[in-house]
């Protein structure tokens, strides 16, 4: 680490790093190349390149998985949940910071303490209470569940960020006749933008990939991508040609999302985890 010059030792390190990267990428090679093969060719040699490549698996898996419907469900639930969480949690965190009453401090403490509760330790009674409130078998019901489960971390992250914003700007806006709601939405919320970006990234990766909660809440015929992949895999166990094509379609949306926004995603996640 003495200088930043590119020397032989750095070159050796570079080669090592590239080899490790290759190891990281090999699973993707197996996945994609075999999804383009006929069933017999997969059994024959799964390491070989597909010859000839066929997209039959994809057209069949597309129909059996009802891919467009699952994709739409995943997209709708992820988008509406991140919007909902951003709105209700930024407002709650703002109020808790600016009005540190005993009640608000207590409330914040509860939200933070709840972060250690593992999902599996409350999922059983959740199924019961969710049905009391008619939240089961519906996408809006699932949305409400995400509001509850996402609120702890989202409020925690916003809380820390609001504290760093000086209150003077808000005071002068109030003097100028701006309502408390106007102060929040016109002045404070835009200032929260860096944290909002982090929160959107963390929540969208979590909600898009979540399997257990939608599995418990949603009913037959309402599937997100993880749910349809799961039932598809159960139906076509060992039918690798179809299963792999289904998997490729399942990971493609999130990989495209990651590769287009990777710089923001990586820095957002670092910011989120360093504070969390």
């Amino acid at each position: 680490m003495e200088t930043s010059r590119y020397r032989t030792s750095t070159f050796v390190l570079e080669i090592i790093a590239l080899l490790v990267a290759l190891v990281f990428l090999v699973p993707f090679y197996f996945l994609v190349s075999n999804s383009l093969k006929k069933y017999g060719d997969i059994l024959l040699d799964s390491a070989a390149l597909p010859s000839p490549a066929t997209f039959d698996n994809f057209t069949r898996a597309w129909e059996i998985m009802k891919f467009p419907a699952s994709f739409a469900n995943s997209l709708v639930i992820t988008l509406t949940s991140i919007v909902g969480l951003t709105v209700i949690c930024s407002m709650a965190a703002y109020r808790m910071v600016r009005r540190p009453t005993k009640y608000n401090n207590f409330l914040f403490m509860i939200f933070v303490a709840a972060m250690v509760i593992p999902f599996q330790s409350i999922m059983i009674p959740l199924v019961k209470t969710a049905s009391w409130f008619h939240l089961t078998r519906s996408l809006p019901g699932l949305w409400v569940c995400y509001m509850g489960f996402g609120s702890s971390l989202t409020i925690f992250l916003y809380h820390g960020f609001v504290k760093s914003i000086p209150a003077e700007i808000e005071e002068s806006a109030t003097v100028d006749g701006c309502s408390p709601y106007g102060v929040f939405w016109r002045i404070v919320f835009p200032l929260l933008k860096p944290m909002t970006a982090t929160i959107i990234i963390l929540n969208s990766l979590w909600i898009w990939n979540d399997f257990l909660l939608p599995n418990l809440i949603l009913g037959e015929g309402q599937r997100t991508i993880p749910l349809s992949t799961y039932s598809f895999f159960g139906q076509y166990t060992k039918q690798w040609d179809l299963a792999l094509a289904g998997l490729v379609m399942g990971i493609l949306p999130i990989l495209i999302f990651f590769l287009t926004l990777q710089r923001h995603i990586i820095s957002g996640i670092t910011a989120g985890s360093v504070k969390g």
Partner: peptide, 11 residues
């Protein structure tokens, strides 16, 4: 409210 019915109550 969301936290109360989704996290606290089941807990």
């Amino acid at each position: 409210l969301a936290f109360a019915i989704i996290v606290a109550l089941p807990f």
